[in-house]
Design a protein around this nucleic acid. Structure first.
Lengths: 227, 227
DNA sequence: TACCAAGTTGGTAGTCACTACCACTACGGT
DNA sequence: ACCGTAGTGGTAGTGACTACCAACTTGGTA
C-alpha cells in the first residue's frame, strides 16, 4: 500500500516534473506556444513524449499549474463571516498573493524592498508563465476556466455545506466570480509591468476599482503607498 | 467587386450555416460534445467535413456564436459618461439581454408574457447552447476567453480612444471584467433554471449581489424606461 | 538473498481536430 | 458566350492526445 510514496520516488517524480516544465516554459517563450510541439519539449527535457503526458495531462498544463487554489479557499473559510462577501474574498485573494510573491519558495533576499526591483527565481518563473498565459489564447481560455473551478471552491468555502437556498448560493457565486475577474485583471496588469509593482497592491487596486469603496490599505504589507 | 453579395449567395450561405449549427447542437446535446466528431456533424447536415470548417473555424464555434458583443459596445458608448463605470456597463448588459431574449429573432407571438413560460425557438436554441457551454469544459473555456475579448471591446467603448493613462485603463478593465463575470454567473443560473426566469432580471440580481448597491427595480425588461 | 508488487518509463498504433493544396461546380456580372 | 469569384469536395498531411503492451527500477518482504 503506497500510502507514503517513500520520498525517493516522489522526489524523483517532482524533479522530472520541474525539469519538463522549465524546459517547456523556456521553449514556449522563445519559439512561441503553438510553434513548439510536445515532442520538442520532451526532447529538450530528455524524456519521451509519453512521459510528458504522464506528468501533465495536457499541453496547457505545462504552463498552468493551479497552485494557490487551496490556499485561497482555506483563508476564506477562516475569515470572519460577518463581513460582506466581497470583502472576505478580496482579502483572501490579496493575502494569498502576498504569500505567493513574498515567500513563494526561494524565499530569502528580496523581502524588504518596497517597490522590489529584483525578482526571485520563483517569481520570475511565475511571471514568465503569466505572460505566456495572457498572450496565448488557448492558455488564457484554460486559465479562465480554472478560475471558474476556483470560484466554485470559494463558494464552497464561503457557505456552509448544507446551504440549499439557491439565492444564497447565487449571491456567493456572483461575488466570487466578480472578485476573481478583478484579480485576473490585476494579474494581467502585473505581468504587463514585468512584476515591478507589488502584486497584492495591484489586486487591491483592482478590487477597489471594481467595487468602489474598499478602503485603501487593508493589510497587504505595503502601508501607505498608493502608487 | 462583390460589395453586396447579391443576397442569393449570402442567403444560401447563411442557411447552410444555420443547418450545420442546428445539427451540431442537436448532436452535441444528444450524444455529448466530445463523443460527437465534426464528421458526424457534417454527415448529419449533409455536407462534407471541409464545409463545416469553412463556416466555423473551430468545433467550439459550432456552439459559441458571439452575437451580442457589438450590441453591448454600442450601448455603452451611448451611455452617459457621468455615471459610475459599473453602472454604465451593467445597464448595457441588462439592456442587451433584454433585446436578445424578448425580440431576439423569431419575434412574433410570445412578446406579452411577463414571466414567460413559453420560450421562442430562438430562445430555446440559445438555452441549449448555453447549457452545452456550461457543461463542456472546452466550450466553457473558450466562451470565457470570448468574454475576455468582449471586455476589451467594452473598455474601448468606455474610454476615449486616445486614453493613455494606464490607471484609467486599468480601472475600466477591472470594472468591465467584474461586470462580465457577474453576467456569466447570471447566464449559468438562467440556464440552470431552463430559462424560466427573466434573463435581464437575473443579470440585475447578479450585479446587485456583486456590487452591493442593490438599486432594486431599475429597468430590467420595462421597455420604455431608459433606452 | 531471492522475490514480488507497484510505480515510472518507453514504444506502437490509432483517433480526431485542423490545415494546406488542388480541382470542380455554380453563380453573377460584363 | 465569357470570365472572375465564391462555395464545395478530396487528399494528404501535422499535432495533440489515448489506448494497449513491454520493459526497468524501487521498496518492502519471505
Amino acid at each position: 500500500m503506497p500510502d507514503r510514496p517513500s520520498t525517493l520516488r516522489a522526489q524523483r517524480r517532482a524533479e522530472t516534473q520541474r525539469t519538463i516544465q522549465a524546459h517547456a516554459v523556456r521553449l514556449f517563450t522563445q519559439r512561441g506556444y503553438d510553434a513548439t510541439t510536445v515532442t520538442d519539449v520532451a526532447e529538450a527535457a530528455g524524456v519521451s513524449p509519453m512521459t510528458v503526458y504522464r506528468h501533465f495531462p495536457t499541453k496547457e498544463d505545462l504552463v498552468l499549474v493551479d497552485q494557490h487554489g487551496r490556499l485561497i479557499a482555506e483563508r476564506i473559510a477562516a475569515s470572519s463571516a460577518d463581513q460582506p462577501l466581497v470583502r472576505r474574498i478580496g482579502s483572501a485573494l490579496i493575502d494569498a498573493a502576498a504569500t505567493l510573491t513574498s515567500d513563494g519558495g526561494d524565499g530569502v533576499g528580496r523581502s524588504g524592498g518596497s517597490g522590489g526591483k529584483e525578482l526571485g527565481t520563483d517569481e520570475r518563473f511565475l511571471l514568465a508563465r503569466l505572460q505566456l498565459m495572457i498572450s496565448t489564447p488557448a492558455l488564457r481560455a484554460k486559465h479562465l476556466d480554472n478560475s471558474y473551478a476556483l470560484q466554485q471552491a470559494i463558494v464552497g468555502a464561503l457557505l456552509p455545506d448544507d446551504t440549499a437556498d439557491p439565492d444564497t448560493t447565487f449571491h456567493a457565486r456572483a461575488a466570487a466570480s466578480a472578485c476573481l475577474a478583478a484579480m485576473h485583471t490585476a494579474l494581467v496588469r502585473w505581468a504587463e509591468d514585468d512584476g515591478r509593482t507589488s502584486l497584492p497592491d495591484v489586486i487591491a487596486k483592482a478590487l477597489a476599482a471594481a467595487f468602489g469603496v474598499t478602503e485603501a490599505g487593508t493589510r497587504t504589507r505595503a502601508p501607505g503607498s498608493n502608487r
